[in-house]
Amino acid sequence: MSTKHLLFRIESRYFAIKLIFVKEVILHREIEAIPKSSPDIKGIFNLRGQVIPVIDFSRILRVPGPEAKKPNMVVLESEASSKDFGFQVDEVIEVIRIEEDQLNHQIDSDKNLAHFTYAVLADHAQHPDKIIYVLKDELSIGEVETAASELEQAS
């Protein structure tokens, strides 16, 4: 059973997310910072009259952020919080198919930040020379915010 995933790159790392969670891919947009917000939230932007929050995905993952001057944006549709949100990527590469049984190295993320799991895929048929981090479930901005507030209280 294969699932369609959107393959994208942040700095030198490759990530894949199920296409069903993606709402839209858009070109570069200027982001406006929100006063007194969590450092995991980069800001907001206007998408055809809808305010979309932008999370700092690379900060949550604790990896280096996008290096492009005008990064693309991937907007996800979150069912859990019924809210859409986006994050910046260097480049959206293509739509690929990933077999479910290929993902056997499942890793849970840090519980303090966002609740999601991901698997490492190192031998994809179209990209055999790359390591792809496959996000297994949807990302939820509500959970990110909760985690951020919990972290602040803890510190």
Binding site: L6, L19, V22, L27
Partner: peptide, 17 residues
């Protein structure tokens, strides 16, 4: 070309939905 690419991704997204 890059805009077209984005367009194709969004089309894929819509098709998946």
């Amino acid at each position: 070309v890059s805009q077209t690419k984005i367009l194709s991704f969004n089309a894929s997204v819509e098709a998946e939905r």
